[in-house]
Simulated scan of single mutants.
Amino acid sequence: MLRFYIDELLQKKNKTRYWLSKETGISYPAIKKIADNETVSISIENLQKLCDALECDLNNLLRK
């Protein structure tokens, strides 16, 4: 199963989930579900927004 590693990336940047929500335009509840690995689907557009904001590629954002 793929897992999101958003909190690790945020910690490295000394940023919060709230910051990520504002930076990407993705609602805070959606960011929370994604970061807690509780989401069942995510759009390609939102994946791109997360990668852009966190300055990472998909391999850093998602892992097995």
Rank of each mutant, 00 (worst) to 15 (best):
F4N: 02
T39N: 11
N60E: 13
E8S: 12
K49Q: 06
L61V: 05
K33N: 12
D52M: 03
I31W: 06
A53H: 08
K33I: 00
T39A: 13
S27Y: 02
Y18K: 14
K32F: 02
C56G: 05
D52Q: 12
A53T: 06
I31P: 04
I26A: 01
K49C: 02
Y5E: 12
M1T: 12
R63T: 06
Q48I: 12
K33L: 08
K15A: 11
L62A: 10
A35F: 06
L2C: 04
K49W: 03
R3V: 07
R17F: 08
M1N: 11
L2N: 09
R3I: 04
I42N: 05
L9E: 12
S43T: 15
N59P: 00
L9G: 05
I26L: 01
D57Y: 11
E23A: 15
C56I: 12
Y18H: 11
E55D: 15
F4I: 02
I34M: 07
S41P: 00
L54N: 04
N60T: 00
Q11P: 00
E38T: 01
D7R: 15
E55G: 06
K12Q: 14
K12I: 02
R17Y: 08
E23Q: 13
N37Q: 10
T39V: 13
L54S: 04
W19R: 09
Q48L: 11
D57I: 06
L61F: 08
L54Q: 05
K49F: 06
S41Q: 03
Q48F: 10
R3P: 00
K64P: 14
L62R: 04
E55Q: 15
Q48W: 13
A35H: 05
T24F: 09
K32E: 14
N59Y: 12
K32L: 09
A35D: 05
E23V: 01
Q48S: 13
Y18V: 15
S43L: 03
K15H: 04
N60I: 00
L47R: 00
T16C: 09
F4P: 02
K12L: 12
L9H: 08
N60H: 11
K49A: 11
E8D: 15
K12A: 14
L54G: 05
Y28E: 12
G25D: 04
K15I: 03
M1Q: 12
S27K: 05
